[in-house]
Design a binder for these strands. Sequence first.
DNA 1: ACTAGCATGTAAAGAGTTACATGATTAA
DNA 2: TTAATCATGTAACTCTTTACATGCTAGT
Lengths: 188, 188
Amino acid sequence: MAKENTTAYIILGLLEHEDLSGYDIKKKIDLMISHFWEVGYGQIYPTLKVLEESGRIVKRPGETYKGPERNLYSITESGRTALTEWLKIPEIKDHTRYEILLKLFFGSMLSVEENLKRIELYREKHLENQKTIQFFKQNLQQVLSEDEDHLYYYLTVLFGEKVYEAYLSWTEEAKELLENFQKEKGPL
Amino acid sequence: MAKENTTAYIILGLLEHEDLSGYDIKKKIDLMISHFWEVGYGQIYPTLKVLEESGRIVKRPGETYKGPERNLYSITESGRTALTEWLKIPEIKDHTRYEILLKLFFGSMLSVEENLKRIELYREKHLENQKTIQFFKQNLQQVLSEDEDHLYYYLTVLFGEKVYEAYLSWTEEAKELLENFQKEKGPL
DNA sequence: ACTAGCATGTAAAGAGTTACATGATTAA
DNA sequence: TTAATCATGTAACTCTTTACATGCTAGT
């Protein structure tokens, strides 16, 4: 992850569509991208600064019709080039880290009940996620033919759906295995 | 992720089983844990130092029967306490970042062919991963009844299997969607 | 002779998180 | 009047990666 600054490319990618403020960028990421890549303000604002200094984007004051000041950023030709180059090179790898698996891996230090509870909570969380992403999916399906961007967006949503499905299916099987283990252990 | 030092707990968890050197720890992580949480030497050695300074582990010279020097680390009572406490608190969240989805999300800047190729490469990579993890799974199944640790290990392997399955199923559906899009676009 | 594996570490830099600070507007 | 939302940013800190440095042994 280091020395990549993926955040910069996310910003460039969003600005390629339309001019946005830092705040807008955060909102867009939260809405469409955060399922598979989260970004905080603490990364967005400094990255905007760096991108501006290197000429990938330009800042101008936004119409501050009401509320606080607003800066709007636009992508430059140089920014567009950088983005396309990044898109063309193959991605290195997924970066997945599951704290729950770490804690389960050392699960024998806790009671079976505690591990079952952990799995149950995980299940509940991802049932929520599943609902959310299916809502997104349905909305997207209705506008899928409108333009190419929707199709690519749809692919990422589909990915999320499949993965949540896998999580949920795992929780069921894991629960069963642990419960059987508990039963066998008990009477002996 | 910040201010957590998960690496420390992985080390403590492994040492809870048996005394190990930094090198051993890296090997164990690569073999059993790296599917869902990777750690490099650059994190292991500094973390060992910190853990030793805070009394969670103790170092002693290992039997250097042959080859280079070896330090062996053992967990202390304080280390065991810290580990158990960490295991008991609920995990915060998964940390998943998919570079491929980011690049696909902005896929309209590339040709459909380029995106298809990206998905195809992803598929090949995870076909490999699937094979590997199924091999692990089969080996584990044979020793599952031996002790509780194997069962928890098995749960993490099962998780990996489900997730790889999801990735592969996604690649199929994504490929089809993109190919159909290409066909519709072509003749018009 | 060369490569792979064993084994330990440091340094530098960048990525990422969390908390803090400020202040206006709008709706309940 | 309180909370939420809009809006921008900094500081401190930690995490993480990458590259570097060293040197032995065993096998081909």
